[in-house]
Write a protein that binds this DNA or RNA. Structure first.
Lengths: 126, 126
DNA sequence: TTGACATTTCAATAAAAGTTGAATGATTGT
DNA sequence: ACAATCATTCAACTTTTATTGAAATGTCAA
């Protein structure tokens, strides 16, 4: 994944409104939500929501599909996972056990992480 | 984890300099790096690096330890993992298989993720 | 085709973040 | 103590981002 794309993702998630929108869509799953539903759920003025949705779209974190006069938004989960993989790449350099131990301490985090950026025999992968 | 803390993390990671610094420290593992090493490695003026390190510190993403006249910085891996857990919480709402399938498609991502925010029997956890 | 609704675009303003050079504080070696 | 080194703080400026209301676009239903 390219650094500029990763930066766009993190910048997109660094606004309170956009973080809420994205998480709402992550939890919504494949049905997603139309813009009006999002605006109501989060109590954000439509014009402002539109501004933030545009940023999320530019980052690739959400997709849109027209549905009559509605716009249906969905979270782009694979991009979220790619971004996590980028951030955690080659964790702890030569000492992968270090990262493995830390992972074990955060309940629930393991299933969403890269099969460690380092192999289980102790060596690291690219 | 609190939303404001998560926002600080994402904001911290939304600058090219800070993203590079954090990844450098993630890969450095427990030895970390002193400020001068970071500045040299990334070719950032010390005054500017200091500005960005301060933001990373405020977000909690790095720690400092004084070492003579040097300042040694280290990545805060548990916070990184907590943040990932927050972002992926309750993924795909009622349809956890949806997220599980997507995870499987991103090589290397699984080991760094929450043991899915949903249980393997199909139900979701808090 | 007219009127109502959903959403976006535009323009203006307000607020925040990034970069730089000069100055400061702290620590080491001589 | 003195000079050199490592790093941070400060002040000024430039650039980017957020928010709002009014207007425009496009779709549906009667």
């Amino acid at each position: 994944m390219e650094k500029t794309a990763v930066l766009q993702v993190f910048e997109a998630l660094s606004s309170g409104v956009r973080l809420d929108v994205f998480r709402l869509l992550v939890q919504a799953g494949s049905p997603g939500r139309v813009a009006g539903e999002i605006a109501t759920a989060l109590d954000v003025p439509p014009t402002n929501l539109s501004f933030h949705l545009k940023a999320l779209l530019a980052a690739g974190l959400v997709t849109v599909e027209q549905e009559g006069r509605f716009q249906r938004y969905r979270a782009n989960i694979p991009l979220m996972l790619d971004t996590i993989a980028y951030l955690t790449a080659n964790c702890c350099g030569g000492n992968p056990e270090e990262c493995a131990g830390l992972r074990a301490e955060v309940p629930g985090v393991d299933a969403f992480l890269p099969r460690l950026a380092c192999k289980h025999d102790g060596s690291c992968k690219a």
